[in-house]
Amino acid sequence: MRNINAIYTTDLGKEWTNEALLPQYEACVERLPLGEAERTKLRDFVRFQLNGERARRTVVPDWTSLGSFRSRASVFEEGAEQCLDSLTEQIAPVAESAGITFDAVITTTATGNLMPGLSYRTARRMGGLVPHDSTLIDLANVGCTGSIKALNLARSLDPAFRNVLIVSVEAPSTLLDVTGTTLDLWQGNCTFGDGAAALWVSTERREGALAVEEIRYRQRADTGLDLIRWSYGDYYNFALADQKTFDQDVREIVSETLAEAEAGWKEEPLWAIHPAGIILLMKIARKLGIPTQAIQPSTNHYRRYSNMSSASILYILKELAESASPGAAINLVTMGAGFNVLYGRVRRVS
């Protein structure tokens, strides 16, 4: 059995609120080469997406400077380095005081490409805490499910890998593109925020650890390739299948996965759910009889940070774990490009 001994998160860069972002986006929409009806539709869509109080953080110092592959890739690299600095400052003292080293480092990001990858950059910062014979793995292009897939990979490793460090770094604000006209691109502009988080996963448990009881995986590569994907401008753009197909297919796949795992979650009221498509989650929750309060930690996270792709669920899990009683289980649900859904369950040990 693997245990999550510690969860680390960081508040990156600066905050963008809906209130601050909306007038800037509206000005951008005004400049787009659109007819009046299309412009009105897009403007209303953006207003709707940015309705209410919500914030997100960004590593981008000045988003108006984004406009080329080089500018975006550079900002991603600088932002990723900041994330790793911040996480390492938290992880290293804990690992030193526990007298452990990491036998593997698994990193994930879907919002940028680096070579050498994040795992090597993490190892460099950690010094002797990641010995030279450690295994370093970068999971790329995984999307929002990356951190839980990394956890699933960690729990599948031979027990000789006693301590594994999982790091998720996502900087979707580096993809922000205000020159496009499609609704899904603007949905991406409005929906995402930057975040980074890490897990110390171990064969030995510390006080307050979370035992990883189950991770269930459902991939639908046969029908789901187009549901969430990159399209291309000067960089990568967020793109979705048409909304109706997306809603129907995603709801079906998530519902199937949760229905299969029902015995595991039925009596457990705590949920860490990836905060994508809140309306979809609320519909699924109603259908499966999951109480609305179960969505609350995810909606709280979404209001404060928006959707941080694979990092979000680790922030939500950390919040829940801090207040969970010994013996309480926390259900994990995440879904994303592929299309795939993961259900997991961890339990706080005494």
Binding site: N51, G52, R54, I278, I279, R303
Partner: peptide, 8 residues
């Protein structure tokens, strides 16, 4: 006033 109110 809140997008979650709209969803509800």
């Amino acid at each position: 006033p809140d997008s979650l109110d709209v969803v509800d």
